[in-house]
Computed example of a mutant assay.
Amino acid sequence: MTFTLAICSEMVYTELPHLERVERIHERGFAAEIWDWTAKDADALVATGARFTSMTGYVTGDLVTEDGADDLLRTAEESIGFARRISCPSLNIHGTGLGEGGIPVRPVEVVTGDMWLAAVRTLSRVAELAEQHDVTYVIENLNLEVDHPGTPFARAADTLALVKAVGSPHLRMNLDLYHAQIGEGNLVELVRRAAPYLGEVQVADVPGRCEPGTGEVRWPFVAQALADAGYDGVVAMEAWASDPSVDGSDRALEAFREAFTV
């Protein structure tokens, strides 16, 4: 196995309390990932024995407005404090804050040149903060068509361009292949282009956002393309179990493991 396999604890074993989800993920040999940390207990997470590979790395803020950038940097520093307590090396960020149901807090119709320049400046500050604390920020692509309409810098081509523009090893790309399949497709070529800039890869099948094998993507082929491109980092299943029962989540994890064992 060339990848570190992780599971988003927010989306599986949904019948169980969150800490029990993390424990079950850990027992099955996967690392765990979390979203919003503000309502979670760091000591309790550590006590599960789980390895944490990623968490949301901000609470509020955006990339393009002066106040939003300052807010993002402030809550990013708070997030780093929590990440260090659970030994999580990677923190996730988006083109703007996401509200209820994943709708952007500051939706936009057109991303202007000035917004691009502002985003690069803000992400450069994020990278500097990450370097100071020896962590890595990853910026995740999203899809506009189904889940996150109006999010700026959402497509994989956008996040890759921003990571290249900042040019720091402390800012990488979180290539979410579920979102990319909906918004852009051509996953293998995308993997090949993005591989040198990747900090994480996330997967869920399309349609439905469930485990590999429930949709249209030929995941073992994509996994081999990742390996052939030289990527050996974290691949995380950020997907619902198609059967939401505990046993169904167990099967979803095993389907993911089989798809990404190369």
Rank of each mutant, 00 (worst) to 15 (best):
M237L: 12
V203E: 05
Q224H: 09
A255N: 14
I139G: 08
G248V: 00
P17C: 10
F3R: 04
N141P: 15
F82N: 12
A241H: 07
A225E: 02
A119E: 00
D62G: 11
D158V: 10
T14A: 06
A6R: 01
T261Y: 11
G57T: 03
G101H: 13
D41G: 12
E238M: 07
P212R: 02
V166W: 01
L177A: 14
E184R: 02
F256D: 05
Y178R: 11
V120D: 01
M55S: 08
L198P: 02
F82E: 04
E189S: 14
A127P: 03
R74L: 13
F153Y: 06
S242M: 08
A225R: 00
G29T: 03
V235M: 10
A180T: 15
T122M: 01
V166I: 11
G215D: 04
A118Q: 11
G49M: 07
N174F: 00
D36L: 10
R24W: 05
S242F: 00
G95I: 02
R209C: 12
W116L: 08
E145C: 15
E258F: 01
P207Q: 10
T38W: 09
A157V: 12
A252C: 09
A127H: 02
D70C: 08
L171A: 13
R193W: 09
D232N: 09
L171Q: 09
E211D: 03
Q202D: 04
G208P: 01
G208C: 11
Q202H: 05
M11Y: 11
G233F: 00
E100Q: 12
E258V: 08
G230D: 08
L226V: 04
L5H: 10
T2I: 07
R257E: 01
K164Q: 15
D114S: 15
I93W: 03
M55A: 15
P89D: 08
D147F: 05
T65V: 13
T75R: 08
E100L: 10
A31P: 07
V120N: 07
P107E: 03
V166K: 04
P152Q: 11
Q132W: 00
L72W: 07
V22F: 05
